[in-house]
Amino acid sequence: DGVAILPAPQNLSVHSTNMKHFLMWSPVIVPGETVYYSVEYQGEYERLYLSDVWIPSSWCSLTEKTECDLTEDITATVPYSLHVRATLGSQTSAWSTLTHPFNRNSTILTPPWMDVTKDGFHLVIELEDLGPQFEFLVAYWRRESATKEHIKMVRSGGIPVHLVTMEPGAAYCVKAQAVVKAIGRHSAFSQAECIEVQEEALPL
């Protein structure tokens, strides 16, 4: 009856970086044929209270790709069970389930990209736009007094933010880390970047 003749996808794994979550698997090879895949998920709620309910992923129903972006589906900090099956014409494989449920609090958080510039005597930073769940903790200091570090929380990336008005002739250094409140974690600090300010121009 055309059910489960097709082999199920193997080697399922989740790759999650900066709160973008991708399920990946090995292709099911049928020479000369295009195999399609469908992904479903079950949050901890469904597993505990509605165990027969699996939810079709937003983007991966009958897809040819062997990866699925689940970022819009995994929206709570609880374990999610994931499974995928193959389809070829009327044939469908068994479901292949990820060995361990995935929780977004295990995502890899990378130090944010940042652009440190000066606008006259103003120290300005622009941080990577990583999406609405990200805030940034920015630390800056005068290079000569490295012990006196100032902290500023930047609510979102992608827009220049004024940090401080610098003193003529001084050098300032800046570093930043990404913070995700929804999972209670932060990245490592980025490499510090330093910038020097010209001496004050003497009146003619």
Partner: peptide, 13 residues
Amino acid sequence: LRKISSIANSFLY
């Protein structure tokens, strides 16, 4: 279903 699941799992958290 996806939106209700999102809310339900957030309430669980």
